[in-house]
């Protein structure tokens, strides 16, 4: 599962991608998070930004302050100590979703594809605890996995040019939520009234890498009244 040695992929003269493995798995993703914490806390001069994703980290550096060789040494040093890195306890976020109808235009198609009912698809989608593997694509856009096997579905043949904000969609073994209106090639099962990105909050996103997520169905009539922010506990 893990590569024997870290794989370095040079991306230009000021960044490198460090790959830990070649699959989407909770173990690899956990180690990516540990590695990201170690790198972000490291005081080495010239480290500009770390962007952790499914199975790799993008390290952006200032080449006028640190050489590639020094950077690689530092990365190897930190990687050797990675097992000791404590990850903060993940929070669990419950996401209300209006499934089907105009909010979830692909629900019936997905049910037909799996030769089952819309109710069964909702039960499966809402009956699972997921993990946020990464945030990317647009601000606050979570990549959430893994769908129950009975819901694994190929992408839409033709992507939509405008997926409404808040849409909850699935493809392959993943489910996502669109924080802003954007194009998208996944099947839309429903929509959440929650705001996933707020630029003036810290952190600016509802979900962070490593969080756990559960969806729960709400009625169409509740959508407009539902508070957009989750109250702080």
């Amino acid at each position: 599962m893990f590569y024997q040695k870290l794989l370095y992929r040079t991306m230009g003269d000021r960044s490198v991608i460090v790959e830990l493995g070649n699959q989407i798995s909770p173990e690899i993703n956990r180690r990516v998070r540990q590695f990201a914490i170690a790198l972000m806390e490291d005081p080495t001069e010239g480290l500009v930004e770390i962007i952790p994703t499914y199975r790799s980290l993008l390290i952006i550096y200032d080449p006028l302050k640190i050489s590639v060789a020094t950077l690689q040494h530092r990365v190897e040093d930190l990687h050797r100590k990675i097992e000791g890195i404590q990850i903060p306890e993940p929070k669990t976020v419950e996401i209300p979703v209006v499934y089907g109808g105009e909010y979830g235009p692909d629900l019936e198609w997905v049910a037909r594809y799996h030769k089952t009912s819309s109710e069964q698809v909702i039960q499966l989608h809402a009956g699972t605890t997921y993990q946020v593997y990464m945030i990317g694509f647009t601000p606050g856009h979570p990549y959430i996995a893994e769908l129950p096997k009975a819901l694994i579905t190929p992408r839409r043949e033709t992507p939509r040019t405008n997926v409404p904000r808040g849409s909850v969609a699935i493809a392959m073994n993943q489910t996502v939520i669109y924080p802003v209106e954007s194009p998208g090639g996944l099947h839309i099962l429903g929509r959440t009234p929650l705001k996933l990105f707020n630029p003036i909050q810290s952190p600016p996103t509802l979900l962070e890498m490593g969080d756990r997520v559960r969806f729960f169905p709400i009625k169409e009539g509740e959508f407009k009244q539902w508070p957009r922010q989750i109250p702080l506990k």
């Binding site: 991306m11 230009g12 000021r14 960044s15 991608i17 070649n22 699959q23 989407i24 962007i51 994703t53 499914y54 199975r55 790799s56 980290l57 993008l58 952006i60 990464m134 990317g136 694509f137 990549y143």
Partner: peptide
């Protein structure tokens, strides 16, 4: 590929 970070110019 599995989604990963990108930088301007790539």
């Amino acid at each position: 590929i599995i989604s990963e970070g990108v930088i301007s110019g790539t």
